[in-house]
Write a protein that binds this DNA or RNA. Structure first.
Length: 421
RNA sequence: GUGGGUGUAGCUCAACAGGUUAGAGCACUGGGUUGUGGCCCCAGAGGCUGUGGGUUCGAGUCCCAUCACUCACCCCA
């Protein structure tokens, strides 16, 4: 096997690909009900876009991006997430000026140079949604509701919605200070990773899986106690609307997001069966991002679902997926018969009949076996004898009944027969 | 980047404590009377045992290295 796919990048083919198609179709349907419009942005962007939006100091930007110069030396990056590109596109085309266009969705591949493991790949796919132009908490709630409803619709019922508020600039700084002060007191007791985190990204200490660290963190100050009046009001309101639609959730004080642009509402959807990578989706509010990227001051909320992770969670409970079976399998015996069959096949397909045919001139027996493997409903046999008589044999594969059909207008006869069933 | 696990036929797996031409099931190809599928029967094809070294009279089996896959850390969807 000389050339294989790149590490962490997978080929998707039947029968899984059909499942991908339905998942995507369901997402599109549901987006439509909520008024989302699709947006397709390039997979490659200038590196600067991601560096500025996601944050220079984040892991994604520091060590996980596929970055390379193009032939003129411009630094480009394969998108590691969708939000930055979408925000860029909205700004570039001033889409925020169109009153009916505030909700966008995108489905496609993302790239991160990480060590692959269960539920984590270097090329992975996201279903992404972004709502721009409103700072209202009602939107946050609706966005989360979409995600939970979608999961339910595709058969993933047992998930947990975790929410938290990250506050705004005003309340986050005092909180961070207070948290760092607290953590520093116990610095020596933390694991090496956490000791590092205290300085680099103190909020992440909450995620540590080591018992000792968890123990200390339990008593740490909570962001929610530091929220300013506005942020508190916002968060309460988000909760109110979630309650109203019967969307259950847990407030997770430890929930932190790895991208710098989030503020206020942050959420994650956790599912079992995923191993260590247990989030099927996550998102939050990013009111400052447009401005940060040099655009107008436009508030926004968004989220992404990991398609591969959805697949893992669906696991065995995949919605039954029948691969389409041919209506007719054409068997030709001999060169002349094959020429006629070829024409019949194409004519039938023009009439939207699913036709398979034996391209190899093999024995009738082996062609019948192949027709059976395809699960064809009917087989049409055309050999020398039939050709002379100007007929073809039609065999019903379930009843085993067979009779001759005139070759004259045979496509019409067959197409009508198929459509009647 | 750091650890652990695993690499034998297209797939799923065998091969006693190192011992002849590495096996099975499924899948594949052909056949079981001239041109009729599923079940069954027969036959066939398919592997430099991931790769490279080493130990040994002898290595799929033991050792080292390397690569790939996988799980976990880290981080995230």
């Amino acid at each position: 096997m000389p050339i294989t796919a790149i590490k962490g990048m997978t080929d998707i083919f039947s029968p899984e690909v059909e499942l991908w198609q339905t998942i995507e179709a369901r997402a599109r349907e549901l987006f439509e009900s909520f008024g989302y419009r699709e947006i397709r942005t390039p997979i490659v962007e200038k590196t600067e876009l991601f560096a500025r939006s996601i944050g220079e100091d984040t892991d994604i930007v520091q060590k996980e991006m596929y970055t390379f110069p193009d032939r003129k030396g411009t630094m480009l990056t394969l998108r590691p997430e969708a939000t930055a590109s979408i925000v860029r596109a909205i700004m570039q085309h001033r889409l925020y000026n169109i009153p009916t266009m505030g909700k966008f969705f995108a489905i496609g591949p993302m790239f991160r140079y990480e060590r692959p493991q269960k539920g984590r790949y270097r090329q992975f796919h996201q279903i992404d949604a972004e709502v721009i132009g409103s700072k209202e908490p009602i939107v946050d709630a609706e966005v989360m509701y979409w995600a939970m409803l979608f999961l339910e619709k595709i058969g993933i019922g047992s998930t947990e919605l975790h929410i938290n508020s990250l506050g705004c600039e005003e309340c986050r700084m005092p909180y961070k200070r207070s948290l760092v002060d607290y953590l520093k007191k116990y610095e020596a007791s933390f694991c090496r990773d956490c000791q590092r985190r205290i300085n680099t990204n103190p909020l992440r200490v909450f995620d540590c899986k080591i018992e000792k660290c968890k123990e200390i963190v339990k008593e740490a100050p909570r962001i929610l106690e530091f929220l300013c009046g506005e942020c508190q009001k916002h968060f309460d309101s988000v909760r109110f609307f979630l309650d109203q639609v019967g969307c259950s959730y847990t407030v997770d004080h430890h929930l932190v997001r790895g991208l710098d642009y989030y503020n206020r509402t942050a959420f994650e959807i956790i599912a079992s069966g995923l191993g260590a990578q247990n989030a099927v989706g996550g998102g939050g509010r990013y009111d400052g991002l447009f401005k940060e990227l040099g655009g107008p001051d436009i508030p926004a909320v968004g989220f992404a679902l990991g398609v591969e992770r959805l697949m893992i969670v669906l696991g065995e409970n995949l919605p039954g997926h029948e691969i389409k079976k041919p209506d007719i399998y054409l068997i030709a015996l001999g060169d002349d018969a094959q020429k006629t069959c070829f024409l019949i096949a194409q004519n039938l397909r023009k009439k939207s009949v699913y036709v398979e045919m034996g391209y190899e001139l093999k024995s009738l027996k082996s062609q019948m076996r192949r027709a059976d493997k395809f699960g064809a409903s009917y087989v049409v046999i055309l050999g020398e004898n039939e050709l002379v008589k100007g007929v073809a044999v039609l065999r019903n594969m379930t009843t085993k009944e067979q009779f001759e059909l005139s070759l004259d207008g045979i496509e019409k006869t067959l197409a009508e027969k198929i459509k009647k069933e």
